[in-house]
């Protein structure tokens, strides 16, 4: 099986306070650490498990600046066979449509059986890229996969639908699947894996290599423009309870009782 998995490096905002920078269009990222988008980590694991079961090759791709290469090394250290870094100054400012064009240009003509994405990225949260790429490559697609099996040329995918239901679909390969967290238990990046990939040069493809028109991508090709970024105003109704777990539980019970919640 030839499996491709598209991944993204995102800021880990769980351990820092989010602040908007002076432009009002970006976050102050001085204290951020970066890591693979959590959904994509599950997609990498799903790809590796399928390779272990069926044989073949897993290739990881990302679109981004030089520093974003770290998530590709990470994927290689987890067990991916190859990586491709799609990087060019004119990619900067791409919206999901632009990213999808870059990815699909890189994937066109490749011997592809399965293309995996994380369902959504933690930073943009749009969940569009997988769908756009499926459209551009004219491939069938299922999103929000909670289980993924392959038998011959058919993939069987369980995925989340409205109302808490799950639906099972069969897809003819090649196909695109976007993966939900919890589909598996991603392996750790091992020290031996890091050692193995530490000297590897990851190939980089730019706008010319992909045969793209620079105006198609980046800020100039973006159809979605960011107008403003702001932190939602602090609501008056939220009350933070403090204390030990037991104290918080007691306070919560009192509040629920006082306000007719129990």
């Amino acid at each position: 099986m030839d499996i491709y998995v598209c991944i993204k490096r995102v800021a880990d905002t769980s351990e820092v306070d989010i602040e908007i920078d002076r432009t009002g269009l970006a976050l102050t990222e001085d204290d951020f650490s970066y890591d693979i988008n959590e959904w994509d980590n599950f997609a990498v694991e799903a790809a590796l498990q399928l390779k272990e079961e069926h044989g073949g090759k897993v290739t990881a791709l990302t679109v981004g600046i030089e520093d974003d290469e770290e998530v590709l090394r990470r994927a290689l250290a987890m067990g991916c066979d190859e990586a491709l870094h799609l990087s060019d100054p004119c990619f900067e400012g791409s919206d999901a449509w632009g990213i999808a064009q870059i990815l699909s240009a890189a994937l066109k003509g490749k011997p592809l059986d399965l293309l995996l994405f994380g369902t959504v990225s933690a930073d943009e949260g749009a969940g569009q890229t997988g769908g756009f790429v499926a459209g551009l490559l004219d491939l069938p697609m299922v999103s929000l996969a909670t289980s993924l099996k392959v038998n011959g040329s058919i993939a069987t995918v369980s995925h989340e639908v409205e109302g808490g239901l799950e639906r099972v679909r069969e897809l003819d390969l090649p196909a695109v699947v976007t993966v939900q967290t919890g589909i598996n238990e991603p392996r750790y990046v091992s020290i031996r894996g890091i050692r193995k990939v530490s000297g590897i040069e990851i190939p980089v493809s730019g706008v010319g290599d992909l045969g793209l028109d620079p105006n198609q991508v980046g800020a100039s090709g973006a159809r979605v423009k960011l107008e403003e970024l702001f932190l939602p105003p602090q609501g008056q109704s939220a009350q933070m309870l403090e204390g030990s777990d037991d104290e918080i539980i007691d306070k919560l019970l009192d509040l629920l009782q006082e306000n007719g919640g129990l």
Binding site: S33, D35, E70, R73, R74, A77, Y188, V189, S190, I191, I194, R195, S198
Partner: peptide, 17 residues
């Protein structure tokens, strides 16, 4: 270097998990 940063992150994630 890159590998050292990778190791730092791998250790952090392992400890967190």
């Amino acid at each position: 270097d890159k590998a050292q940063k990778d190791i730092q992150k791998a250790a952090k994630r392992f400890a967190k998990g």
